[in-house]
Nucleic acid binder design. Structure first.
Length: 513
RNA sequence: GCCAGGGUAGCUCAGUGGUAGAGCAGAGGACUCAUAAGCCUUUGGUCGGCAGUUCAAAUCUGCCCCUUGGCACCA
């Protein structure tokens, strides 16, 4: 069996509710996953939930619940988000699952046996109130803020993972693999970090301080902490220790936010894998953040808008389109309701939705609800086909280079070209003529509009899967299963039945006041 | 402080040496198949600032300013 295209998001931390950032990462990953499926890859797409740790334990205690109960609630929320967004993940991993505990313990034991883990004393400043270690960085004006309460220096024995001995290897690996981290400039952050000597990584917490974690296999007085729990999910979900593993690992892409590249994903994780003798993931796709999500958009309406409400208000596809169109992968982007509305109305409703609407309507009125044959090929047709040719040429490289915002821009610029073509041919005028030449032009124009629309939605499909399928059905096309030949201008729609006139993206009612 | 990303029309962005671009928003017009949509025309920029290299710089170099991140046990 051929290796699958294995792609992951970061797993979300269970101590909080989903927000725009979570939604975006899932959409971004899903777009890539769906694109690869169209390219013919067998895809294994995993997302999940990181459930252990101090914060979850404390939240549970505050709520008077068992930690697992809290996690179960949060898991429902996050999985619900995936459904709402029509994320096509093949697996959802939760770090409290038995399959994961087993892998974490096996990996820890393995490293312990190899001498990569040792026990040592760790001295630090501990905040009793927050039940966590604090560092000099947390100090404000030379004092720890009030929220930490009394901070005392304590010495604690813990287990450490040897990072330093792999440092040179890691620097080499990153320097010699330019495609390892996208965008490339992020590699510089990692290499800068690696200019300083690495300290070993503390991977345990004593059980009396933290119960909510996976027990160290070689010392039941401790649980493992954070990274050995969270990062290992990627190989758990790949089926580490089972036959499935070879079909999945190495991951083709870990899609993550820029905040967790250095040091966890670009330093700890590669070293963990290297120490275990496992292959590294092939690429990291590092995205930026949505800024001002919340406060800023309340200005005009006076009401705070939760970006995730837009999914229900305007559909998953519209939401997916917006975040994909607006975000230049790797950079940050500004979220505002105004921008969402502008995209929705201008691009989706006016350009795409209305184009389909006028085609279906004219097909019903002039050609008995069928896609007619294109019988002539004159300047307007040739121009439109040329425009498509140059559009198609750009799309694959843009998709391959994660330039989704520009790919969408290009597609919508072609859609605009179809609208322009319609004005040039003006089938509604031709319909009033008895001249056979006008009749031929009328039929040709509707055929060309339908074909051009079909071509437009092919590479809209990864971003707007439902809408794209809907468009295909309405113009008499079959469901899309691959890219093969789909981007070539042809006459496959000839004679196909057009659907009833449909409003794809209804204009929202203008709310009074 | 050091490193990196961004700073181009009101907004979002494209544009890496050769007379400043797109979409949206604004203004005007013709049309009517269509979701008061679409189409045509148009207003609008000392390309963050200063200096330098060059016949020529948004594009190369230096310094500065604004902004977003990274800079070891922090999720």
């Amino acid at each position: 069996m051929a290796k699958k295209f294995y792609i992951t998001t970061a797993i979300d931390y269970a101590n909080g509710s989903p927000h725009l950032g979570h939604a975006y990462e899932k959409v971004l990953t899903d777009v890539l996953a769906r694109y690869r499926r169209l390219q013919g890859d067998e895809v294994h797409f995993v997302t999940g939930l990181d459930e252990h740790g101090q914060k979850v334990q404390m939240s549970a205690r505050k709520a008077g619940l068992e930690p697992q109960a809290i996690c179960d609630q949060v898991a429902v929320e996050f999985q619900g988000l995936c459904q709402r967004l029509e994320i096509s993940n093949d697996d959802y991993i939760r770090t409290t699952e038995a399959r994961h505990k087993k892998v974490v313990q096996s990996v820890l034991q393995d490293l312990y046996d190899r001498g990569e883990i040792y026990k040592a004393e760790y001295a630090g400043f501990y905040s009793q109130r927050q039940e966590q270690f604090v560092t000099e960085k947390e100090k404000v004006d030379g004092e720890w803020p009030e929220i930490y309460g009394e901070v005392e220096e304590v010495i604690e024995t813990n287990y450490f993972f040897k990072l330093a001995q792999h440092q040179d290897w890691l620097v080499d690996t990153i320097e010699n693999n330019e495609a390892f981290i996208y965008p490339r400039f992020r590699s510089a952050d990692v290499l800068q970090f690696l200019k300083e000597p690495l300290n070993d990584l503390c991977i345990s917490r004593p059980r009396e301080r933290l119960q909510w974690g996976i027990e160290l296999p070689f010392d039941s007085e401790y649980v493992t902490y954070v990274w050995f729990d969270a990062l290992v999910n990627y190989i758990t979900a790949a089926g580490y220790g089972t036959d499935a593993y070879a079909d999945h690992w190495p991951a083709d892409f870990h899609v993550i936010g820029k905040d967790i590249l250095v040091p966890p994903h670009a330093v700890y994780w590669p070293i963990m894998l290297h120490a275990l003798g496992l292959e590294l993931p092939r690429h990291f796709l590092v995205h930026g953040w949505w800024l001002s999500s919340g406060a800023k958009m309340s200005k005009s309406t006076g009401a705070v808008v939760n970006p995730l409400d837009l999914i229900e208000q305007h559909g998953a596809d519209a939401f997916r389109y917006f975040v994909t169109r607006e975000m230049n992968v790797g950079q940050d982007s500004e979220f505002s309701l105004e921008r969402f509305t502008a995209r929705y109305n201008s691009d989706l409703a006016n350009d795409l939705g209305n184009l389909l609407s006028r085609l279906l309507n004219m097909g019903g009125r002039y050609t008995e609800g069928r896609v007619p044959a294109a019988t002539i090929d004159e300047a307007p047709e040739q121009e439109l086909k040329q425009l498509w040719e140059s559009t198609a040429k750009e799309l694959i490289p843009l998709y391959d280079g994660f330039q989704y915002h520009r790919a969408l821009e290009t597609i919508f610029s072609f859609l605009s070209g179809i609208n322009r073509y319609a004005e040039t041919r003006a089938p509604w005028k031709l319909a009033k003529s008895e001249d056979p030449a006008d009749r031929a032009a009328l039929e040709t124009s509707l055929a060309c509009m339908a074909e051009a629309l079909r071509l437009s939605v092919v590479l809209l499909t990864p971003v707007m899967p439902t809408i794209s399928e809907k468009v295909r059905a309405l113009i008499g096309d079959e469901a899309l299963t691959g890219l093969d030949g789909q981007l070539d201008w042809g006459d496959r729609l000839e004679g196909k039945t057009l659907g009833e006139k449909t409003i794809l993206f209804p204009r929202p009612e203008r709310s009074a006041g």
